[in-house]
Write a protein that binds this DNA or RNA. Structure first.
Length: 224
DNA sequence: CCATGATCATTG
DNA sequence: CAATGATCATGG
């Protein structure tokens, strides 16, 4: 049976803690969910499995996964030393209609204001079924962390607003990268002269260095 | 179509 | 070999 949404933070934290140490195969079998051999075709499978097991209810709406708690859940693939293996997708980057939106009203802020990080063994040499769930971390950005994110967000929003060329090299901790099914997908945007154009959709991503900072704040990582 | 869940795979 | 740019599946 599908778990109901958690009603408070303590319950969410407890459920997440109960998953630590189990393999993905253990969890999938608990719910009778079929496992793929690998993630080449179902890249979001791990995240969807954990959302299911924890009772997330946002259902791909642009808001935090646990709507009553305002908590977003992110699985984070880690290597043997606990370092992140991938960047973390946050949300789509608005290309129109965002003039005047401030940081605290942004979707990036709302998603990152409270996050349940669930580390998962992610090295490709470990068969998907054998990968284990690590110790979860309920996190809220410190003042310093929020300032870092905000500075990047403001820089990136300016690029978006003024239709300037964007690469993943902008931003220190937050970056903008393509976010689409393939290169043919286009969305409405404005060019540098303010003319409407069709442009490649972009998404906000957290770089690995930032995720590493978060994990460092909570866990001992790396070889002794 | 667009937003969710992300990882893949080519490149520098 | 890390980082950037590209891509895959699902659901409303």
């Amino acid at each position: 049976m599908r778990p109901t949404p958690p009603t408070n933070l303590k319950q969410l934290a407890q459920r997440a803690n109960d998953l630590a140490g189990w393999t993905l195969a253990d969890i999938a079998s608990d719910y009778g969910i079929q496992m793929p051999e690998n993630l080449k075709r179902e890249k979001g499978w791990v995240g969807q499995l954990l959302e299911y097991a924890l009772g997330a209810d946002a259902q791909s709406r642009p808001e935090p996964d646990f709507t009553q708690l305002g908590v977003e859940m992110k699985t984070i693939p880690i290597d043997q030393s606990g370092a992140p293996l991938e960047t973390t997708y946050i949300c789509v980057a608005p290309r129109t209609g965002q003039a005047g939106v401030d940081w605290h009203r942004s979707l990036v802020y709302k998603k990152l204001a409270h996050v349940l990080w669930v580390p998962i063994e992610g090295e490709r040499k470990i068969p998907l079924a054998e990968r284990r769930v690590g110790t979860p971390l309920l996190w809220q950005p410190s003042q310093e962390e929020e300032a870092m994110l905000r500075a990047d967000w403001e820089e990136l929003m300016e690029l978006l607003t003024f239709g300037q060329p964007i690469t993943a090299r902008h931003g220190e901790y937050l970056q903008l990268r393509p976010k689409a099914a393939d290169g043919s997908v286009k969305t409405k945007a404005f060019d540098i002269n303010g003319k409407p154009i069709q442009a490649q959709p972009k998404g906000f991503y957290l770089k690995k260095s930032f995720t590493q900072l978060i994990l460092n704040r909570a866990f001992i990582t790396g070889p002794i």
